[in-house]
Write a protein that binds this DNA or RNA. Structure first.
Ligand code: ZN
Ligand code: ZN
Length: 209
DNA sequence: GCCGTCGGACTCTCAAAGTG
DNA sequence: ACTTTGAGAGTCCGACGGCA
């Protein structure tokens, strides 16, 4: 069904990844589906509901349901240590395929740089004209005395070169301090009927709700 | 139409095992 | 020390049903 905050796209591209996704007609090939991107930590509400979260706090979904105050990161378990494993199968040459995404990038990273930059587009999608180092994200910037709203922002993210190889800066000290640049605002926070009634079209040419 | 629930496919992370 | 592998732990898609 349609467009809810949970599944806003007609195709499986996370909205924070490909904000200016091209209209369907220029999506060329029936490509293998682009990789789904996950947030590092879903908030407890989204986790409970098994729904998509985002990196902003409060997250889009909590804001939508008016429970922004309850939007907190879920606790992640520590991985078990000391688990013994059998010998590995060597997969070299032709059979090697697992993490070899299509490009011979830096081999030290399990996290493909492609997943970090806007330069990477899933197969079948055209590049979008975003400045390097930016990708779009829904980010709520709370202002004192202001009701929660749904501004769209372009969030500046750390350049890939500034990210420690292999890790996306999950350590607290590696966390970039992004600055946010408002590009435009979705109209509906002040619209009557928000959030439940009317759909609208974002300038991204994607229907959000 | 919206919402909540949930099974399971998918993704991410990182310790163990392997390599030089 | 560095790289590779693979599985644990997590996210969230998509189907479904209930309700207004
Ligand atoms: Zn959330
Ligand atoms: Zn939340």
């Amino acid at each position: 069904m349609s467009a809810s905050v949970d599944a806003p796209y007609p195709f499986p591209v996370p909205h924070y990844m490909y904000p200016f996704s091209p209209p369907p007609q220029i999506v060329a090939t029936p490509s293998p589906r682009p990789k789904r991107r996950q947030v590092k930590n879903a908030c407890t509400n989204c986790q409970k509901a098994c729904k998509k979260c985002d990196d902003a706090r409060p997250c889009l979904r909590c804001v939508k349901y008016g429970v922004g105050e309850e939007c907190v990161d879920s606790q992640r378990k520590q991985r078990k240590k000391g688990i013994k494993r059998g010998p590995y199968k060597k997969r070299d040459g032709r059979g090697r395929a697992v993490r070899a995404l299509d490009s011979p990038g830096p081999l030290n990273a399990h996290v493909s740089p492609a997943s970090l930059t806007p330069a990477a587009n899933p197969p079948g999608y055209l590049p979008v004209p975003l400045p390097p180092g930016y990708y779009a994200q829904y980010t709520h910037i709370p202002k004192p005395g202001e009701a929660p709203a749904y501004p769209y922002y372009i969030a500046q993210v750390a350049q890939p070169s500034a990210i420690p190889a292999g890790q996306e800066g999950e350590a607290a000290n590696a966390q970039p301090q992004p600055s946010y640049y408002p590009i435009f605002h979705a109209p509906f926070p002040t619209q009557p009927g928000y959030p439940h009634s009317q759909s609208f079209i974002t300038p991204f040419n994607n229907k959000l709700r």
